[in-house]
Design a protein around this nucleic acid. Structure first.
Lengths: 207, 207
DNA sequence: CGTAAATTTTACCAATTGGTAAAGAGACGA
DNA sequence: TCGTCTCTTTACCAATTGGTAAAATTTACG
């Protein structure tokens, strides 16, 4: 269904699939799905174009594989939100983790953002099947924290949106950030700003 | 330099250039720069492909024209930040305005975001020449408000980043938002959430 | 070693791409 | 009514695209 025969992947398969996916990440995130070419990915991976298509059925297959794997990595920190932890610190930890990912893996963030921009046509089902249930579960946890008075009353889904938006901005709009900060590395002040901002938003006001 | 001869634009020119830019906005924002085709834009505009190229020199010329015009529209509300107004209300008004634009003109937001994702190769100069000076000016105003004790101490540039990110998220990640909210229209709750959030962040704590 | 399977290369292709040349059709003032 | 300038169409093209067929080569393994 996906690519080479159906067997256990050999060492060569593991290596080349990884080479291809690594190169594809760079190309797709830089040029967008439509602007990316198999030739460009092949060159990046050090393979010939027909050889690419020995490992993946099509350009789309590479792209979708990349996005699916990505979605998992990207969701991990959200999964770790612990209902039994301290609410404010759990959420601030999540913000921190998300910011770090954006700063360290900007290509991954951009690839995902590019797919979103185009209406997520190729991973809509993943969003429905994987992200949505997780999202609902975590919103419920946040709502419980609020009901228990351990968190200021916020709108859980929109809080999550704001966290995602504010953190990913440093990856997705990195070019703009860089220009507007005059090239200064944003990481330290961004972290301080986001921590301060979300602490104010989350801290319950009746201690 | 840009397109048809050098004269005052006739009525036909005005109309067709508008048709082309309107169609191009839809196509570029949906398919990205690389994925967009002149044929698709021409069809959308109801013109033939060679006729497009009578009005614009190239695909890139259409794209850049669109982005430049866009940048102005998008910057307008920031320009209106009034140093003599009430700081908190000025900024909350800006948030509100920015959110409205994202909800009502998502294609414009996506087009801009797409260019940013790719490192802004085609409007880097506009960012430098137009956005950067404006940005610095507005950061200074915010800093003055803070120094005057009329605003909680925030990091002005990063505050603006967070405002941009949180508002544009509803346009750029509209597909995701829609899935996660189960199709519910986000506008009312988004507005309430952002107002509440940024009010907390901006309100000085020593009244 | 030998051989069958896995991998890679070479040669190729139809479709699409951005863009051009030049002929033709309208508009419009003198 | 004529002639000129603006606009539009038709016909075309070289380059690139995603993808295939099949031969050639490597690798794994008994």
């Amino acid at each position: 269904m996906t690519t080479p025969p159906t067997k256990k992947p050999s060492r060569i398969q593991m290596r080349n699939r990884r080479l291809i996916l690594d190169a594809a990440l760079v190309v797709f995130s830089r040029d967008g799905y439509g602007g990316a070419t198999l030739d460009s990915i092949a060159t990046g991976a050090g393979l010939s174009k027909p050889n690419l298509l020995y490992y993946f059925d099509s350009k789309t297959a590479i792209y979708v594989t990349l996005l699916s794997q990505l979605l998992e990595t990207w969701l991990d920190p959200l999964i770790e939100l612990d209902p039994d932890g301290d609410p404010v610190e759990e959420l601030l930890g999540y913000v921190r983790h998300k910011l770090d990912m954006s700063l360290e893996l900007p290509d991954e963030s951009k690839l995902f953002a590019g797919e979103m921009l185009q209406g997520a046509p190729r991973i809509m089902n993943h969003l429905q099947d994987e992200l949505k249930p997780l999202f609902d579960r975590k919103c419920a946890i946040i709502q419980n924290w609020i009901d228990a008075g351990k968190l200021a009353p916020v709108d859980p889904p929109h809080l999550i949106f704001s966290i995602w938006a504010a953190t990913q901005h440093y990856a997705d709009f990195g070019a703009q950030v860089s220009v507007l900060l005059g090239g200064e590395n944003p990481s330290v002040r961004a972290a301080a700003h986001l921590e301060q901002m979300f602490r104010k938003v989350l801290q319950p006001q009746t201690p």
